[in-house]
Amino acid sequence: MSLELRNVSRLFDGKQAVNNISFFAEHGEIIGLLGTSGCGKSTLLRAISGLDSDYDGDIAINGNTEKEIQDTTGFIFQEPRLFPWLTVLDNVTFGLKGDKKGKIVRAKEYLKNVGLEESGELYPRQLSGGMAQRVAIARALVTSPEILLLDEPFSALDAFTKMQLQDLLLDIWKAYKSTIVLVTHDIDEATYLCDRIIILRGQPGELHKEIRIKDPRPRDRASKQLATYKAEILESLDLNVKTS
């Protein structure tokens, strides 16, 4: 499924948060939205998801520009946001429709994908941060979203869990080929995961630069090639030189 943004802007109480953003994502592409905090990355993602409909411009999901939440879109938030009164399994089946048996079978399959097939009966309070985020990933994927939106999904996790879950995301992406938009402020994460990195800058945030990463996956996190990309990104964010 393709995703296109045309001249998207968003005002908050008369103050511009993002200004005139346009880009196109092909089916199955992983797009990274990168930028320092306050440049409107999350605002943009919420507009794409339909949670926020007060933006200007058009967002077309497969050509459909309705400003509504579409059931082909999945969202993984920064926090797991599990329902504390439901078990892990019930959390995963939450968004599914249809008969109960089918839902459970499907949920179990996805729990297995994230390595939690044994934990279906647990409550969220019994999970570690990494496990909870895995459940959130399973919950978002179980509805087979064709567009998957991720808002700094791994930023609250420790470095090792983070790498694990990044690989998990790639595995799942390989299997289901969703179009992914990933908001992040982690440059390593962006270069490791994305086909294309869109750099936003300024306040209001504007599209500053697009970097295409053609390296085949799996990529080597420590490779020189990724380090070059990182340098380029740092350069364009003006983070290498201290000004003012």
């Binding site: 949670l51 969202f75 938030f77 946001r81 329902f83 939450f94």
Partner: peptide, 11 residues
């Protein structure tokens, strides 16, 4: 509000 948003995402 965050939990309500999750519900909304599932339509």
């Amino acid at each position: 509000r965050k939990l309500i948003e999750v519900g909304k995402m599932y339509g």
